[in-house]
Design a protein around this nucleic acid. Structure first.
Lengths: 212, 212
DNA sequence: CGTGCGATGTATCGGACCGATACATCGTGC
DNA sequence: GCACGATGTATCGGTCCGATACATCGCACG
């Protein structure tokens, strides 16, 4: 999952680890706390070894004389490669059981702007099915096993059941919207271009000024 | 977390792994899918090595002659030890950062019937604080960074924000209830008992003496 | 002037937990 | 008699987290 998320973020702009983590938190804040460096750095290494990403030189122009001696303990900027973009497209389109659990669904959903409509629909329906199953499980417990459980445990189940029902309704709306052809509820003031084919980073200009 | 959950379930009755998993699913179904055997069995081994649980003989009375030769490939029933009960009491009362994340909070909450009121209140308030922080983070993103994100990502954040607000309200209710002295919303028709062998969970009263 | 402190930044290690897999037993229906 | 699904125990590789370490930079405060 992290692999997919990192490739997705780097698709938008080259970045170093620290920045990447912040972007990840902004994009996935609704579903995960914050990615640990203990996951992020090994993942970056793995992606680099596979050739999906490469290190990008900082300070391209205006190169001051190499400070050499002092071992240059600076940050490392990564950018996605052409193979990385292919890999991302492959990962974002392919669905398995893990696509429908909380984290997997969240990550896929966060990149729906880069996913074709058929896949979006498939994922939304798969997620709905999974949540409906969880809902049925909770109803069973609340119905059949209620007298075996204490009041606190029951309250927990009720709260979980409520969350399930709510999410199913949310998904229904999204599915209906999706079928009718347009992006989610939002008014849509031209901010999304839809990422029709491949490549081509999204419209909003990156305000990453970095250096003079 | 698994350690706490297993000790908590075994507190209610001796059980073998397969059964334990089902009980765990019934108790924690609202927060986790189902514990993997790849986690459960190593945990049982660890708990046994530490002396918190022991293997209990099956078929205590009516013992048929030992089938001996055929290597006895049966199920293994575990029961909690006195040290295990102490361990459980220690774990259930101690709170750290991990007590307030989704899984940690869920497990603690599921055993609130065996937790004293002061601890319950502490945990509920800690959880509320954590969710409020997550909520503020989401509001920030939706406010400040909205134009940098596409419609789908924004929709995800909105849904997450909604879930946060809802959970905060739920927690408020529970906290108010807790302060007023009685168990959660449920009418409480005296059916709640469970715990076949020993220590009954306290209704509203405290008196966490635990010694039989 | 220095000095401490919080933000930025990279990196590793042990441990928790999962998913896939393997295999053995038992009851039941065909 | 035998296939098949439920019951049941067990291991392995891999992903991810939390704690920890350490180095640099800007800036506020005395």
């Amino acid at each position: 999952m992290l692999e997919l998320a990192v490739l997705g973020i780097l698709q938008e702009a080259p970045m170093h680890g620290y920045e990447l983590r912040k972007e990840l938190s902004a994009k996935l804040g609704a579903i995960r706390a914050a990615i640990s460096y203990g996951s992020l750095y090994p993942t970056l290494r793995r992606l680099q070894a596979a050739g999906w990403i490469t290190e990008a030189d900082e300070t391209p122009a205006t190169a001051q004389e190499v400070p050499a001696l002092t071992s240059r303990r600076g940050r490392v900027v990564y950018k996605i490669t052409a193979e990385g973009k292919e890999r991302f497209a492959e990962l974002i389109a392919q669905t398995g059981p893990e696509t429908y659990d909380d984290t997997g669904f969240g990550v896929h959903f966060a990149f729906f702007a880069r996913t074709d409509q058929a896949t979006r629909l498939r994922i939304l329906e798969g997620r709905r099915r999974k949540i409906e199953e969880r809902r049925e499980g909770l109803r069973d417990v609340l119905g059949r096993a209620a007298e075996r459980l204490d009041a606190y445990t029951l309250e927990l189940q009720r709260h979980g059941l409520d969350a399930c029902e709510r999410e199913v309704r949310w998904l229904e709306e999204l599915i209906a919207n999706e079928r009718s052809g347009r992006p989610p509820t939002a008014p849509q003031t031209g901010s999304v271009d839809g990422a029709r084919d491949d490549s081509s980073p999204p419209p909003p200009g990156d305000s990453r000024t970095e250096r003079p």
